[in-house]
Structure formats: structure tokens, C-alpha cells
Simulated assay, not measured.
Amino acid sequence: MADVLSPALLREHPLPEPTGGKDARGGVLVLGGARATPGAVLLAGRAALRVGAGRLTLGVAASVAGPLAVAFPEAGVLGLPEDADGAVTGPGDALGRELDRADVVVVGPGLDAPEGTLALLRAVVAGAPGTTPLVLDAFALGVLRDAPDVRDAVRGRAVLTPNAAEARRLLGEDPADAPDEGADDDDPVAARLADAYGTVVVCAGVVAEPGGRRWRSSTGYSGLGTSGSGDVLAGAIGGLLARGATLAQAACFGTEAHGVAGDRLAAAVGPLGYLARELVDELPAVLVGLRTR
């Protein structure tokens, strides 16, 4: 059975509280953002900073790097190679330096082409130090099942954040067989995926670590199922990892903070209709509440 996440449980495993400047809180590198979807990277990056990360660099298709840098002055922005349709085609020449200095790398938000995504993932696992944790989301999960070299490289150092359909695809199952969220409590797909891939997995409100414990969120309205919400979750987990949290700890705190942010907005706006960007702005106060309630 999964332990239920709660402020009392989370207080037993407090987040690291670094002192000093931004470098002490770690640097996050978010890679994604095809020409049509740079907002996914913006949401993930903002979430990383809102949970306390100190530095942020965003990698997006080169054609939207300039506008994104203007829209998000708190972040450094790196242009990635793209094709005529605006899909990211690979890492480019400047990524190596950013991988060297990143404390965590988030890959996937806003990517939309399998070949370019796989090239980017291979560059990350080859170029980032072996101790650098990774968060894989969205299209990065779509190519992972058929890339055994990348699967081997991320074992023990990654958090995967699939939805239920993506999780079943990663397991080689029919995504159409996915039950409603919360319907498979006795054998959550997150736990099976964690064991299969050797990573921490967050899926449908369940956090699982390979061969070990699992936790279930106590919160979260259906309004969380909105465009960009998963990008916020991936970025929040990345920001907590940058602060020094363990993989499972960052996944648990990120999952619960994401759900409580949804609860707050459900009360203020309604159970449906709030936006992912509004979740981001709730995160600092939510984390304070999780530490002190």
C-alpha cells in the first residue's frame, strides 16, 4: 500500500535549506520548446524558480530563443537547432557548457519530434556529469522505451513524470487500457514503471521508487488536468532537486505542492478553469504551508 502524502509526513523529511546566494540553491537546465510550444519550457522554468532553485537556463528552438529571453528575464536562454517546421533537431554546439554547470536537467516540455528528442537525450546523458539528476517529461518519455542506451544511462538518476497513457506505452501496454486515475491502487502503474526502468516515477498522483516505497497524493482536483500542468510539475521537481533534495523527496514534495496549489485555485476560481501559470504562483506559499502546518 502507498503512504498518503501529508504535511506531517513531509515534515519528517524536510527539504534542504541552503544558505548563501543563488549558486547555493542550484541551477536548473530545461530543454524543450519547439517553435510552436516554447510556453511549456517557460512554465517548467518558472516552477523551478518558484520552488527555490537559484539559477535557470532554458534551451528552446533558436527562432523563439530571443522572444523567450525577453518574456523571461530571470532566465538565461539557449537556442537549439531546429528544422523548417520549428522542431528541435538536436543539442547544438553550445549545450556542453550548460550541461557542465547544471545541477539538474529537465528534458521534454514542448518537444514534438522523436528524432530530435532522442538526439537531445543522448547528448544530455553523454555530456552531463553522471551524478546530475534528470527529470524526463512529455516527448522525452515517448522515445525512451525504444532507446535502451538511454534507458540504461538514466537508471538510478532520474524522475519520470508520465501521464497514465504514457506510462503504459513505456511498459509496452495499450494506452487505451489505462483505467481512471486512482483506479489501480493495489498495483499502480507508477510502481511497475519504477521497477522496470530503475527510476523514481510520478504518475496519476502516485510516487514510486524502484523496488521500494510508494506514496499517494492526498489532494488535487480534476482541474489539474489542464494544458501545461505537467510542465509545472516537472519544473517543480527539477527545482527541488537543484536545492539538494533526493529523487524521491523531490518527487513527493513536488507532487503534493502541485496538488495543493490546485486545491487553492479550486477554492478561489472553481474546480475547473484555472490555468497552469496560476499553479506556478501558488507554489512558494504552498511549500511554506507544507513545512509548517
Rank of each mutant, 00 (worst) to 15 (best):
R151C: 14
A208I: 14
D281I: 01
G59I: 04
G33D: 00
E17N: 15
R11Y: 15
G230T: 03
G20D: 13
P188Q: 06
A248L: 10
V30F: 05
A158N: 06
A34R: 07
R264Y: 08
L275W: 14
G182K: 01
D112K: 05
G205W: 00
L121M: 13
G108D: 08
K22W: 09
T131M: 11
D184T: 02
L15Y: 11
A204I: 09
G244C: 07
D149N: 04
A75N: 14
G182L: 02
D263N: 08
V4A: 05
E74R: 05
R46I: 01
L99T: 05
A190Y: 07
G198Y: 03
A119D: 15
P14Q: 00
T255Y: 03
P129C: 10
G108R: 06
A53T: 06
G262Y: 12
A266G: 04
G76R: 11
V104S: 11
G92I: 00
C252L: 02
G205V: 00
A75M: 14
L240N: 07
V124A: 03
V150M: 09
V154L: 14
P133N: 02
G211W: 10
I237Y: 07
P91D: 01
A94R: 09
V51I: 02
L272E: 00
G130D: 02
V105L: 01
R97K: 13
L170G: 11
G238I: 01
A257N: 10
L121Q: 09
G270Y: 08
V189C: 07
R151I: 06
D187I: 01
R151M: 12
A191K: 09
L58V: 13
G235E: 09
V30H: 10
R216L: 12
E166I: 07
G220H: 05
S6N: 08
G27V: 06
V64G: 00
V232S: 02
V232D: 11
A261E: 13
